[in-house]
Design a protein around this nucleic acid. Structure first.
Length: 195
DNA sequence: CGCTTTTGACCTGCGC
DNA sequence: GCGCAGGTCAAAAGCG
């Protein structure tokens, strides 16, 4: 019942799209390719949906080491980090080790609803008021066992019809829901084409 | 009853 | 060092 409109405000100059976490289901929905636990490279399926200058993927952080980019490296702290509860936040890095940030990808979607069903199952773990924004930002984590993909969802103050979704990490598992679910959404989407 | 959401507290990083 | 902003935790509440 909702009309989604992908809103890609930027032209060209997208970073390297490989690893975009929604790639798999986007691909599965837009073409006939299946999603066999794929990651990264399957963005082609996503690319099929757009022309070169419609998507803007914002690569917020680049200093991630490749071998850390997969899930599972979080919460390995257990013992050494057990001093007080929130030391666990540092999970994934050992003492003296530099903080490691996964790359994050942001895109904007025009929608009336905050929750875009991308096929994965998410659990909300936080919500914060954001400065200069009257709408709160919501924090979600993928509930799939062992999957540490996170996403943030935020609505723009300037244009409250636009949802900004930021993904962090890559799904290393298939979609939880049937793909036609997301395909259904795609069918409702109006891809924004400036020309 | 198990899973999800809510929400205040807490932690970290950064700029001043 | 202090204050602010962003991010996360975890207990309690809500819900199917």
């Amino acid at each position: 019942m909702e009309n989604y409109q992908m809103f890609f405000p930027c032209s060209s100059s997208m970073g390297q799209p490989s690893g975009f976490p929604m790639a798999s289901n986007m691909g599965a929905a837009s073409s006939n390719m299946g999603f066999n636990g794929l990651q990264g490279e399957s963005l082609n399926g996503f690319l099929n949906l757009r022309t070169e200058n419609q998507v803007r993927l914002v690569r917020e952080e680049e200093e991630v080491e490749k071998h850390h980019s997969q899930s599972g490296s979080i919460t390995t702290s257990a013992d050494h980090g057990a001093e007080n509860g929130q030391a666990r936040m540092l999970a994934g890095r050992k003492k003296g080790e530099k903080k490691i940030r996964k790359p994050r990808y942001a895109f904007q979607t025009r929608s009336q609803v905050d929750i875009l069903d991308d096929g994965y199952r998410w659990r909300k773990y936080g919500q914060k008021a954001v400065k200069n924004n009257k709408f709160p930002r919501s924090y979600y984590r993928c509930t799939y066992q062992g999957c540490n993909v996170k996403k943030q969802v935020q609505r723009l103050t300037r244009d409250d019809g636009i949802i900004v979704t930021t993904y962090e990490g890559m799904h290393s598992h298939p979609i939880d829901k049937p793909t036609d679910n997301f395909e259904h959404i795609l069918n409702q989407m109006q891809i924004y084409t400036p020309f």
